[in-house]
Design a protein around this nucleic acid. Structure first.
Lengths: 135, 135, 135, 135
DNA sequence: GTGGTCTAGACCACC
DNA sequence: GTGGTCTAGACCACG
């Protein structure tokens, strides 16, 4: 499971962490019953304040993704994977929708937007089997 | 020229205003030498505080998009359109890139992402002729 | 009599006009009993709003430099030259003092400051008999 | 590090604060990696509103002098000292130039100006050894 | 009427 | 505790 946060994003760090844990559970990298990394460990790995991680965990608990195991850490709940797959879709879709809404409102032509999207799409996963751009 | 802001967005309102003016100038809706709406007028139209609009104008001045006409308002600079077309591209691209980066990090499959994007793309401008020919 | 205003100065334009009329009277370019340029003429010459000039004249009247001649314009008062020579000295000295106080507070070395001053002094009146800088 | 602002100056308070922080960094009183005084502390010390200080900090960030440390304060950037030495020179020079331009435009004789400058120069740092050798 | 500055104080995100 | 954003409203300089 890879975590990374971007300090310069307008999205709060704790929210980024929430998303990433959700993504991890949705993808099966974190399975029900398994412990997620501790607050301290994750804080150190991400170079953020432990309180920030703690806050993310609090939110994850609220969402029913993880549950505290007294004294041992936080564990992924049985319903976690199902919840997270739905939430993942929602998160990603909302962000994409917002970006495209803005693009449209910018009065860029649909073709320009399509071009930008394709550009970035191939940049983002350049490791895939070659050029995604249609001929 | 249509302006609208979303108070619940993580993007500060003053930044939304900055973007929208840039879009307006880039699109030619606001031309060099013409006055942009006044602080007070725009504040009233957007239902935000005049100070918030003033802050956006300050940033637009810093970016060389508009210049104050003492006592008369803010005027689009001669270089405005050129600057703004570049800045528009940057703004839109950055937002799309961030959304796609997140999508990739969510471990959704590239095909799922492509599908989401196409979905939203056609939603955003449903008036276009369908799904945009793709091989 | 040369007038010029700098729109980008933090000093209000009307105050710049006040200073320049005072300078003109102090230098003898405007003599007691002579009419100073009309609001409209000066406004046109300086490319500023007539109201701005009117405000400057109001201030000059308050300072006893000029007096209105019903229907014919503003004339320099008998005491004008004397008043203005004192005021000129005060204005210039105050501005120089403020600049130097700031320079000292900037922690630039006295030699650096002296160098800057000499630099600018020779720039400002390059038309004088050669280099003012001491060997 | 000493800060002080003059509320009656035509120079906005927030700009005075910007200059003073730049002077402090240029002089080495504020070093890279060190925290500058907090918004609230500085506001209290200068008897101005915290928002005014915040605005100055925003400008300093834009100039690459300081960078925010989320939740901990504002830190002087690595490039700060270099940037600031240049900016200090620019600030001081601009102010001196403006003062001298005005002096010249006042039609005071060059010798009178020189005398005024020397007067004030020795007043400003009277603790130095006299009138500064001039041929 | 315009924008610019300042004060005042709220709330938020983060540490 | 920190800075960031926003609202609110005052006053000023300028046209």
């Amino acid at each position: 499971m890879l975590f990374s946060v971007q300090a310069d994003s307008p999205i709060p760090i704790y929210e980024q962490i929430v998303s990433q844990v959700i993504f991890g559970v949705a993808a099966g990298a974190l399975e029900p019953g398994s412990l997620i990394p501790s607050v301290r460990e994750l804080a150190q790995r991400l170079l953020v304040h432990p309180n920030t991680v703690a806050r993310a965990f609090q939110e994850l608990e609220r969402r029913g993704v993880v549950a505290p195991l007294r004294g041992r850490g936080m564990e992924v709940t049985p319903d976690g994977p199902t919840n997270c797959r739905a939430q993942r879709q929602d998160i990603v879709r909302a962000r994409i929708r917002a970006a495209l809404r803005e693009a449209v409102s910018s009065a860029l032509s649909p073709d320009d937007i399509r071009k930008l999207v394709d550009d970035e799409l191939s940049r983002c996963n350049g490791q895939r089997r070659g050029k995604e751009k249609r001929s």
